[in-house]
Amino acid sequence: MKPFTYERAGSPAEAAAAAARRPEAKFIAGGTNLLDLMKLQIETPAHLIDVNGLKLDTIEPTQEGGLRIGALVRNTDLAADERVRRDYGVLSRALLAGASGQLRNRATTAGNLLQRTRCPYFYDTNMACNKRRPGSGCSAIGGINRQHAVVGASEACIATHPSDMAVAMRVLDASIETVKPQGATRTISIAELHRLPGDTPNVETVLEAGELITAVTLPRPVGGSQQYRKVRDRASYAFALVSVAAIVQPDGSGRVALGGVAHKPWRLDAADAEMPRGAKAVAGKLFADAKPTEHNAFKLPLAERALASVLADARG
């Protein structure tokens, strides 16, 4: 871990100002991913701005009938919130399927969205990785890539986004509220937040340098049967091979997003439109442009079968 200076910010504005002063700074909240990566010198901030004192840790109703979730709400608290459990069950389920009790107690809503990939080549600094060292190449292509992306990847990167929560947020059409270093605020849809790797897999989100997530808002509840199905080798404390977040309405319409298959939560309007026709039709659309490797081709039938199982459960 490289030496860094450290300060605590007292308000979002103060945090933004601090970030403006120190462009090489990183915000730290839960720290469960950032410190992991700093120890391996994959992340090397020269300055840390501790945002835990920003009082962004409440969940409040919005005027539109949704919920505004403070960026610092811990994963445990978000999953356990009565309104979330009642109206956004897919989000509770996704959070509870992720990590461990200890990690969920620290990890924050914003930090969870900004998790970096768990690609083992990204984690090994001896290996080429375009995400870690742009232009060095992608060791996962042609290597061990059973966990990797099957769709939306590029010649430069086949990493997946590891979050469960983000997949549920995607199917719930969440929005991200931010403040930029100069103080301007904006709202970004979850669909737009994460980027596909393209030629610049090191650029993972549309956030600008020093831009701070302050909240995530959920639109008013859409009801339906809300399911999150995470498929993994071990029964807990493991990242998804494939996960399915789905909301199914009594008339068979609905929405679905997949985790573990792409560089971002994977959801397509064309696939949602196929929901009444069942898993095969939906998967056909989701994977229309899939380019799996020899090791991860199983994710295609796996996702379809997991979705079929979710739809069957939703029908009761």
């Binding site: 768990r118 083992p120 984690y123 290996m127 060791s139 080798d233 029964a235 493991a238």
Partner: peptide
């Protein structure tokens, strides 16, 4: 039986999954 395997990258000659997140051993729930 169910999960343990040191995955070899035969191009570079090493075990790729070299930590406790990538080399899965059973947890309580298993």
């Amino acid at each position: 039986a169910l999960m343990e395997e040191l995955a070899i990258d035969a191009r570079h000659g090493f075990f790729v999954n070299h930590d406790l997140a990538h080399y899965e051993v059973p947890v309580h729930a298993d």
